[in-house]
Write a protein that binds this DNA or RNA. Sequence first.
DNA 1: TGTACATCAGTGAACGCGCGTTCACTGATGTAC
DNA 2: TGTACATCAGTGAACGCGCGTTCACTGATGTAC
Lengths: 215, 215
Amino acid sequence: MKQKHRAQKTSTGVRQDQIAQAALHLLARDGLKGLSMTALAREVGLVPSGFYRHFKNKDAVLDAVLEFIGARLMANASVVLALEGPVLPRLEKLLQKHVELILANKAIPRVMFSEEIFAGRPARRARLYAILSGYLGTIGCIIRQGQKAGELRDDIKAENLAVLFLGLVQPAVILRHISGGQFDLAGHVGQVWPLFREALTKKKSRKGRRNEKFS
Amino acid sequence: MKQKHRAQKTSTGVRQDQIAQAALHLLARDGLKGLSMTALAREVGLVPSGFYRHFKNKDAVLDAVLEFIGARLMANASVVLALEGPVLPRLEKLLQKHVELILANKAIPRVMFSEEIFAGRPARRARLYAILSGYLGTIGCIIRQGQKAGELRDDIKAENLAVLFLGLVQPAVILRHISGGQFDLAGHVGQVWPLFREALTKKKSRKGRRNEKFS
DNA sequence: TGTACATCAGTGAACGCGCGTTCACTGATGTAC
DNA sequence: TGTACATCAGTGAACGCGCGTTCACTGATGTAC
């Protein structure tokens, strides 16, 4: 199917947004290999070469997508960091937002878990690590608040708890992805969150747990 | 650098093993995009076209790699399933073997977490899901043994606990991967395993926990 | 044991395809006077 | 308000490159008699 009519002239600012959205849509539907210049341009009604009026090259779109994802993650974390009140309900809120974000944007796991996006681009790999570190760092801050307030056990490092927090969701996200949406993500989180919550709740302190080793 | 000498004639059986090993090595070093026919053939001392004496095509190698990974995972799970004694130490043993396996074969996470390996190949996607389901199913069996023996809490489904068991490791594996090996995988597991162990240990039963919902 | 033939692994040249990207040109929109 | 010019977005043809794959040929290894 050829281009029937010349696309309407549209300012670069608008086109950049359109293209970024189209990229997220294509990534969600077809994964990274579905993100070709042809598909991307067609999605916004342009001819492939038209793309280059608005982005320097394909890498620039991937960078934009990565920044978009990072911003969305950090937005969730920041909101919850700023909330008042006991920590556990706030963490539950963040968990819920995290699941919603991923269910609404299938592109997120596809980008985060696909190494092709940073294979051979050290700068992008570093950027991805920075984004993840920022997200985990903020979660760690929230957890540390709870530890200092005496709400959460403090014999396990907040950083590790933050990573484990991600672990409540992440394998399930991948299973959902591989199963083609069959795996019940929200149901899984509903099962394991109470376990995590209870395990984090501070008990009367015992000695020696801090030095426990995984051999 | 051109081929200096004609490669020594070697039987297809041996060559297939060599090629599979070379594929794992290349995947570990460079990821999926590093797995080109040229690189693969050179790795075993052949000219690219020589590869086709031993495999039908590139897909066949990817299938072989996937089966290899599946076999290694299931081997670990089966051993632990067959062990005698209380369940928690057996789970810890499996965790340890899992971490060792992944540290020794960086290709495993690269294949499991990279969607490019099954993008557009429904059969391979299904196979990957079957392998993961088999692994998780066996872990679930072990956990169910513990639940029936009254060692582990049984108010959370064994299947979800199995997925959470993976969650002890998986985000850390990805962080390790993205950070270029900096993230301390074994250290993380050492921190969170005790939490998981304690959380799973059966306490005096309370009512109503089973119906708890994640909203 | 030696000879003839079949089988089988290795080689290099060439292919086709997809994809990211470039470029000269077109025509619309905005601006200066 | 109208005219001249600059700017800017869209177009289609063409490119170069990498990569998976094919194919006819070579030469070594195994086998039958």
